[in-house]
Simulated assay, not measured.
Amino acid sequence: MGRLARSCLQSLLKLVNSVMGLAGMGMILYSLWMIRVWYRQTGDFWSHSNPPWFIYTFLGLGVTFCLITCSGHIATETANGHCISCFMVFVFLLVMLEAAVTADIFLNRDWEEDFPEDKTGRFEEFKHFVRSNFELCKWIGLGVVAVQALSVFLAIVLRALGPDRGSYYDSDDEYVPARLPLLRNQVQHTQYVADGYVPSHNDSWNVAINDKLNQ
Rank of each mutant, 00 (worst) to 15 (best):
Y197C: 07
L154A: 02
A146G: 13
I156D: 01
Y175Q: 10
N202S: 12
Q148M: 08
Q41E: 15
F58C: 13
S71M: 14
L4T: 09
S71P: 03
S132L: 08
Y39W: 11
G81L: 14
R40K: 14
W46H: 10
A160V: 09
Y39C: 14
M1A: 08
Y30P: 01
V37G: 03
H48M: 12
K119W: 05
I35E: 09
S167N: 07
M1E: 09
L136D: 05
Y56T: 14
F134C: 12
T190L: 15
L213M: 08
T69W: 07
W139H: 09
W38F: 07
G26T: 01
P181V: 00
R184T: 10
A100F: 12
V198F: 04
F153V: 13
L67M: 13
F134V: 15
I105N: 02
K127T: 09
F134L: 15
A194S: 11
R36P: 00
I209K: 06
A149R: 02
A5G: 03
Y30K: 07
L32F: 05
V63M: 14
A146S: 13
Y56H: 15
R36D: 11
Q215D: 11
R109D: 14
D211T: 09
P116C: 01
V63N: 05
V145F: 09
S204T: 12
T42R: 13
R179W: 04
S18C: 08
A100M: 11
L4I: 13
S31M: 00
L142P: 03
L13E: 01
G143Y: 05
D118G: 00
L94K: 01
G24F: 02
L9Y: 00
G81E: 13
L150F: 04
V152M: 13
S47C: 07
Y197M: 07
V144A: 06
D110S: 08
G81M: 11
P116E: 01
L136M: 12
G43C: 03
M1I: 09
L183V: 13
C83H: 10
T190P: 04
D164S: 07
V95F: 05
Q10R: 09
D164E: 08
G43K: 02
R165W: 07
A103N: 03
S167K: 09
S151R: 06
V152F: 05
V63G: 06
G24P: 05
G21L: 01
K127R: 15
K127L: 15
S47E: 06
D44Q: 06
D114H: 06
S151V: 04
I140A: 15
H73Q: 13
I84R: 02
W111L: 09
F153G: 05
I74V: 14
F65P: 07
L150M: 10
N17P: 00
L97S: 12
F106R: 11
N133K: 11
R6S: 04
I28W: 00
L29A: 12
Q41R: 15
L93I: 08
V207R: 10
D164G: 01
E125W: 03
L154I: 03
H73W: 09
A160Y: 13
L150S: 11
N210S: 15
K212N: 05
R3C: 03
E117M: 06
M88G: 02
A99D: 12
D170E: 12
M88S: 07
W46C: 06
V193T: 10
L9H: 00
F45A: 12
G24M: 04
N206F: 08
D195R: 10
W139F: 14
